[in-house]
Amino acid sequence: MCVPLGTPTSVLLGLALACHPGPTLAVTALVTALAAGSGRGPAGCLLVLAAVLTGQLSVGWSNDAVDARRDRALGRTGKPAVSGRVPVPALWAAAVVALVACVPLSLANGAAAGGFHLLGVAAAWAYNLGLKATVLSWVPYAIGFGQFPAFVSLGLPGQPWPAWWSVAAGALLGIGAHLANVLPDIDGDLKTGVHGLPQRLGPRRTLALTPVFLVAAVAVLWWPAAPLAAALALAPRLVRRPAAPFQSAVAVAALAVALLLVRGTG
Rank of each mutant, 00 (worst) to 15 (best):
L5T: 10
P8C: 07
T9V: 14
V11N: 09
V11L: 11
L13A: 15
A16G: 14
L17T: 00
G22T: 13
A26T: 11
A26Y: 09
A26M: 15
A33P: 03
L34M: 15
P42K: 01
A43D: 10
L49Q: 05
V52S: 05
L53F: 14
L53H: 01
L53W: 11
G55Y: 03
S58C: 09
S62F: 08
A73T: 12
L74W: 07
L74R: 10
K79G: 05
P80N: 01
S83A: 14
R85M: 15
V88E: 07
V96L: 15
A98P: 09
V100E: 10
V100H: 02
A101Q: 02
A101N: 07
S106Y: 05
G110F: 14
G114W: 06
G115D: 01
H117T: 03
A126L: 14
Y127E: 09
L129N: 02
L129P: 00
K132N: 14
K132P: 06
V135G: 10
V139D: 00
G146R: 06
G146K: 08
F148M: 05
G158Y: 02
W161V: 04
A163E: 10
W165Q: 11
A168S: 11
A169S: 12
A171V: 03
A177I: 13
D189G: 14
D189S: 11
G196P: 03
Q199M: 09
R200S: 12
P203M: 12
T206Y: 08
L207F: 00
V212N: 11
A217E: 04
V220M: 01
W223C: 05
A231K: 01
L232M: 14
P236H: 13
R241I: 00
P242F: 09
A243I: 09
A244V: 05
Q247Y: 04
V250T: 10
V252N: 10
L255P: 04
A256Q: 03
R263E: 05
G264S: 07
G266R: 03
